[in-house]
Design a protein around this nucleic acid. Structure first.
Lengths: 353, 353
DNA sequence: CAGGTTTGCTAAATCGGATTAGCAGTGCGA
DNA sequence: TCGCACTGCTAATCCGATTTAGCAAACCTG
């Protein structure tokens, strides 16, 4: 098939030196180890001519570092939104010459264990354990075998692992502020959770809890009380439709804070059914910045999940973990929060006070 | 950090035999090489007790096989649809104990070269080169270095590489048949390409060409002539909206064949603007089975891109490539076509003849 | 000019397995 | 009873790098 790979021995031979010398020069340690200029040049020239590239498998065996990191998620690769997380991680890794192994667990703990094993068998330098949606997870014991980071997830039990999550509380604040800034003070309804802290969908999504906290905090500070909150079992379009429809049958809201874009899609349909215009009659703000948000008419103003940035950040944090001295047991479960930017589009109208 | 990995030497020692013997037993060659039952049992027991797992990096160095395959795409991981392709590949690979490296090129040839290098440096056993949307690509020379498969892509120049693509011609036939079966014979408009073979969007998408062929073939066989075809530069919702709107200003179609779901989304909006109901007034059939297809109201009937199956198939084909004897230069650029299933939903109404 | 440094490079060991060659011990036939 | 085949296991080598230990030649120095 291909003409056998060029090895260090080949380079050494054409440069007329020992493999040791060639290795020294190519690893940049020639200087400190007193290799002559002449020899250094010969080696460099030979390597360039032969297009030598070290065999990373071999290096991995000798040094234990494979310039590879494992990315395990429940089902991240499959969804557009969370796919960006992989992309961010991919690029950040590539910038440092690292490759990514990916694996999906489907939420199956046994599969997770298997993947972790498979990656350790391949001597990955570190592992990113990601969740598709922000939540708390049980950290598998096997994670202890290498530097690791939790992405879009928090440890259920106290853990020394650092985690990277979107700043959902601040996102809640931002959404609420967007409405307040537009002059809305009354008739603000929450679709998906609320109005009280305990009114949450089942499943313990971190997003629900924290978005609600942020929203309530900002509204409270402004002396505004949400006109209503509406919980549903799952944040899908059909619930957005049903909830909003039920709401419209009783009263006429001024603004909706939908807990995600899929709910907002349903809400749009309900508003349309009742002949109400967005944002003329009702303003809508939402969360996630799902691709449909910019396809909806009018385009939806939404607080974006920064998936790409989350992925990058996870790699950054992982590298500091890898760099950390193995003895040094510092960094106890630090939580890194990535800001969620608001995408201002067309679904909020300002209302004169 | 972790207690050093258990090695073959450890197993050998606790079993009281040489590493050679342990290796023989564990690789299943103990039988043919006349290792006694007793020793075999001791080794097996020791391996189990110590939870021995071979270091794949080491095996890779010695045997050249790393049980790893590389998956390079232009930007596949990021889109939901094509993300399924990765998922299919991932699962098919895992079933055989293989892991996937993934990389994205962003269409950058230099980056592609770099990724290919990085993967070869890591001794991957094979490579899948994937495209987000079906098209012809220039096969990089570096692909020759290992078994490889083209996924969702065809070689621009003749190439010995096999490829795996969706069967778009048949998809075109299926879509057209769906309309014919529902009794539509007139007023069928094509949104996105046609009516003649040469009326195609720029960019040379394989989907456009082949879907059109299939559609025209089936309509022609039934003696039906499309009432019109409408080309646009890109298959985005806004063009679907504009094209359909322009069409509706002139006439009242009976059915639309949209060349993808995003166009269909725009068409829905235009129809709604004109007060026309789907499917009562106008039937719509489309392609891709994008997630929005089932969110639209009424839900869109569409011929699905079988991304998951494509991914699996690519891995299957890659394994036969890997299995192929290196001397044997058989299999010259075989093209594997994966069927596209129609998702019958609510957007086609039957019309009595 | 003997003894100690420096300089500049290389031999050999190592990582963790797979693989090839070979070595004791036993049994059997002549 | 000697030689040969067979049985059952092990020593040694290899994969392709990195790294440690060390060696010859040149250079000082008193």
């Amino acid at each position: 098939m291909s003409p056998r790979r060029v090895t260090l021995a080949d380079v050494a031979k054409t440069a007329g030196v020992s493999p040791t010398t060639a290795s020294l020069v190519l690893s940049g340690r020639g200087r400190e180890l007193r290799i002559s200029q002449d020899v250094e040049q010969r080696v460099l020239k030979a390597a360039a001519e032969l297009q030598y590239r070290p065999n990373i498998v071999s290096v991995g065996l000798r040094t234990g570092t494979t310039r590879t990191i494992g990315f395990i998620s429940d089902t991240v690769a499959t969804t557009r939104l969370a796919g960006d997380m992989i992309k961010g991680a991919l690029e950040a890794a590539r910038e440092r010459g690292f490759m990514l192994f990916i694996g999906e667990t489907e939420g199956d703990a046994e599969l997770e264990r298997l993947l972790l094993q498979a990656m350790h068998d391949r001597q990955v330098d570190g592992i990113i354990l990601a969740s598709m949606y922000t939540r708390t997870i049980k950290v598998p014991k096997a994670m202890a075998a290498a530097p690791a980071v939790l992405l879009n997830a928090l440890p259920k039990q106290p853990s020394p692992l650092p985690s990277v999550v979107p700043d959902e509380i601040e996102a809640g604040r931002v959404a609420a502020r967007a409405l307040l800034d537009a002059g809305h003070r009354e008739g603000i309804h929450l679709i998906g959770a609320g109005p009280a802290r305990r009114n949450l969908p089942a499943g313990g999504s971190v997003a629900a809890v924290e978005r609600l906290i942020g929203i309530r905090e900002v509204l409270a500070e402004a002396g505004v009380k949400p006109a209503g909150g509406h919980v549903c079992p799952d944040w899908q379009p059909e619930y957005g439709l049903a909830l909003t429809r039920a709401l419209l049958e009783k009263e006429r809201p001024q603004a909706l804070i939908c807990f995600n874009d899929r709910l907002a899609l349903g809400a749009y349909q309900a508003l349309d059914d009742f002949g109400l215009k967005v944002p003329g009659d009702v303003s809508v703000v939402s969360f996630d910045d799902h691709p449909i948000a910019s396809w909806m008419r009018p385009q939806l103003t939404t607080v974006a999940l920064p998936h790409y940035e989350l992925g990058r950040k996870a790699v950054d944090v992982l590298f500091t973990e890898i760099g950390r001295d193995r003895e040094d047991d510092g960094g106890q479960g630090e939580v890194h929060r990535v800001p969620m930017p608001i995408r201002v589009r067309e679904s909020i109208a300002s209302r004169s006070a």
